[in-house]
Design a protein around this nucleic acid. Structure first.
Lengths: 280, 280
DNA sequence: GACCAACGGTTCAATATTGTCACCATCGGC
DNA sequence: GCCGATGGTGACAATATTGAACCGTTGGTC
């Protein structure tokens, strides 16, 4: 009886811990600072960064000083603002040498754009959105143009929904806790409706988004996978909505599935059955 | 008298602090872990990493867990080994959007290789060596081939010496404190001799290295500069030593200087006079 | 199949680091 | 010369980090 209750409470503790335990708060804070540097705001002053990250100025500065020792942060000597350093170039190269995802994604996207004759793009999970790592527009008149520096919000893009569908529910919860931007008048910003979309994507193995991020554009996306079966990112085709037909969608679906399989196997991941079956 | 001695001790304290004060040890440790991932050893187990970084296993693991929360570290689910995550792809893109050093370096290296008709390469400062960010071999028979994934050790390459020459002396001291590898039978590994080379490079504005990193290869390098006047990295030309002549070296020197100037201005840096005068 | 060594992973009291907050110096507008 | 903003700093209480010792597994050896 006593033993039982002890085991129970231990299990419960462990469970809670897995959910909320955050070792190394300091590291979390440091990494949290980095996410505020974006293509649209690449340099940030001390006070503003502290405000953004919800940290004390002194703390923020100490972290920045430490990061700059390792070339991860640089300071503009004139404005005193901070920006990302060259250290990331190095680590991105090492990462790419290990897992050549950018190279594979480029190849795959080129192929996908060619066979579908529409714009294709691939993305990986970033801190609060997906980041485009490869894109290609086909050579013809009306195509969807992509800004590769613009983050793809989870809730408003086909890629984002597809990514969330094959990841830990906690990732989705975190995504829905953010401010959900309205990019077109049709962008779905109701968390419950988005959860339904994610559930549908999980069942179908893909997601088709219309007008959600850009007007008059439909995107069809599937995730590609890590070795543990979770989504690592997404690959998608974007078409002008006027061109959308059942036939085209079927074709794109099959090709995107093949592209997902290609990237997944190249990075040593395991394909989810729901995606796999779409290749047929 | 009292005031004087107080000021003195405060100044002394401040001086010592600047030398040894390391705020945010935790951040230092976390960043220190990252440097052990290299193209040749991209996945590292917990115990080995702890040994390499000279940290406790428990500490190491807590840091890794925190980093992986932010996509900076991934774990191979089968071998349990850790590797760099996709987060760096994102930050490298942001950094590149801010300071397009890779793009500029590629252009410049292409040009430099064409006008000199020899192999050209550019590098940025990494944690313990320079990292190649761009390289180009000319189209002809005998040229020097470069492995772009191999780090360029500070002490054994023209680029490394040129970089150290225009940076804080403390960077050089740190570099010389490392194990100084012997890559050819001519590699200089005596710290004092290396210091002399660095001093010469500082006076000349460039450095010519022969047989130091690869046999039968001569490299001529100059730094390019940050906004604060310190070296950010180096640009170099490598030629087979059999082709080396006073005439060729003069030509290369002038062209490398132009290349350094181009990169420096593109990233908003200030060119050091010693390098500038070599363009004439 | 029993031993061993090495691995990944975890715990909790002891301890070192960090956050807080009040503070300075400087800048630009008014 | 004041105001409110900025970047930056220091002392000490509050808190997060540490590390020896501890599991439970795995894989090799005899």
């Amino acid at each position: 009886m006593v033993a039982l209750s002890t085991n129970l409470s231990q299990d419960f503790y462990k469970h809670v811990k897995e959910l909320i335990f955050r070792p190394m708060k300091t590291v979390d804070k440091a990494m949290g600072l980095l996410r505020h540097f974006t293509p649209t705001q690449p340099e940030i002053g001390l006070s503003e960064l502290a405000r953004l990250a919800d940290l004390d100025k002194a703390t923020t500065r100490r972290i920045l000083v430490s990061l700059s020792k390792h070339h991860f942060i640089e300071q503009n000597q004139i404005t005193k603002a901070y920006r990302l350093g060259s250290g990331f170039l190095h680590l991105a190269r090492v990462r790419e040498a290990t897992t050549p995802i950018t190279a594979i994604a480029n190849q795959t996207v080129d192929w996908l754009s060619e066979v579908t004759n529409e714009t294709a793009h691939a993305s990986v999970a970033g801190p609060s959105a997906l980041i485009t790592i490869a894109h290609k527009e086909p050579h013809r008149g009306t195509v969807v143009m992509i800004d590769p520096t613009e983050p793809l919000p989870f809730h408003a893009t086909a890629s984002g929904i597809a990514y969330l569908a094959f990841n830990d529910p906690e990732v989705m919860n975190a995504a829905l806790r953010q401010q959900l931007g309205k990019y077109t008048e049709f962008t779905e910003t109701n968390p419950d409706a988005i959860r339904q979309r994610v559930a549908k994507a999980k069942a179908d193995g893909f997601f088709l988004n219309e007008h959600g991020f850009e007007s008059d554009v439909a995107g069809l996306a599937m995730p590609y996978f890590n070795a543990d079966g979770s989504a690592a990112g997404a690959i998608a085709v974007a078409m002008p909505i006027t061109r959308k037909s059942e036939e085209l969608v079927t074709k794109i679906k099959r090709n995107v599935a093949a592209a997902s399989a290609r990237i997944t196997t190249a990075i040593g991941g395991v394909l989810h059955p729901n995606v796999q079956q779409l290749m047929r």
